[in-house]
């Protein structure tokens, strides 16, 4: 089973220092990068499958040249290889460019399944996975809570979360699966994993390596722009209640009534 996980390095939300640069684009230098949370679930699912069925997991990222630092963390979790598409032209790419570049890069790899996360914590559009599937003509199995490939039959079954439970989807491989947290908690890298990751290979590819011309992608042709950014109005001061439960409860009810919630 060969699985490619589309993995984006994103600013660490927990670090709390995200900001826009003077060009109104995300200032990626301001905050340390981490593996996008939803991509960790995708990676965990990929690792469990290859542990059970044999095979290898390849990470595919389109990111700045500093991305290998972040990719090492995913390699430490157990991914086998990394492929990084990086090019100064790609700075400021929108999702259309990102989708094109990832699809072009994926085309150069061999795989049975490609995994994407449900969305990214920085852009959060949740459109890159479905877009890559469309460009490559891959079956799209999204919002996966369980992934069951049948190598012999060359097919994959996915439980897709639905508003009332789940649907069972089936398609031939290769296919693209959009992964959710319901697949299970990502592991922490072990010390052994961290050591092993140091010697794992991360291949760097330029735009021309994946067959994309610089005119069709990147910030210069981005289809979206930020016009303004403002801080949301601060919330009013917090009211603190330290009373026995029954008195506190009356205070809460009075508070809700005053706000016309009840």
């Amino acid at each position: 089973m060969r699985i490619v996980v589309l993995m984006k390095p994103v600013p660490d939300t927990a670090a709390g220092g995200e900001r826009l640069g003077p060009d109104m684009r995300l200032d990626r230098a301001a905050v340390p990068a981490v593996v996008n949370a939803n991509d960790e679930y995708a990676l965990e699912a990929a690792l469990k499958l290859t542990e059970a069925l044999g095979g290898e997991v390849t990470l595919l990222s389109m990111a700045p040249a500093s991305a290998p630092d972040t990719m090492r963390k995913a390699l430490a979790m157990g991914a086998h290889h990394g492929v990084l598409v990086t090019d100064p032209v790609l700075e400021g790419s929108d999702t259309v460019s990102t989708t094109r570049v990832l699809a072009a890069a994926l085309k150069t790899l061999e795989y049975d399944l490609a995994f994407a996360g449900a969305d990214t914590s920085d852009g959060g559009a949740g459109v890159v996975g479905p877009g890559v599937a469309a460009l490559l003509g891959l079956p799209l199995l999204s919002y996966a809570a369980k992934i069951e490939p049948d190598e012999a039959a060359g097919r994959v079954r996915v439980r897709r979360l639905s508003p009332t439970g789940y649907d069972v989807l089936e398609a031939p491989m290769p296919a693209l699966v959009v992964c959710t947290q319901a697949l299970g908690e990502p592991r922490y890298p072990s010390l052994k994993g961290i050591m092993a990751a140091r010697s794992k290979e991360i291949v760097t590819r330029s735009l021309s390596d994946v067959g994309v011309t610089p005119e069709e992608v990147g910030g210069a042709v981005a289809g979206t722009k930020v016009l303004e950014a403002t801080s949301p109005p601060a919330r009013a001061a917090t009211e603190v209640v330290r009373e026995p439960a029954d008195v506190a409860a009356e205070r809460v009810v009075a508070f809700l009534a005053a706000r016309r919630i009840i």
């Binding site: 016009l227 403002t230 801080s231």
Partner: peptide, 12 residues
């Protein structure tokens, strides 16, 4: 950014 910023955006 987790609600830290509100932005107004447009297509180019």
């Amino acid at each position: 950014f987790g609600g830290k910023l509100n932005t107004t955006n447009a297509f180019t």
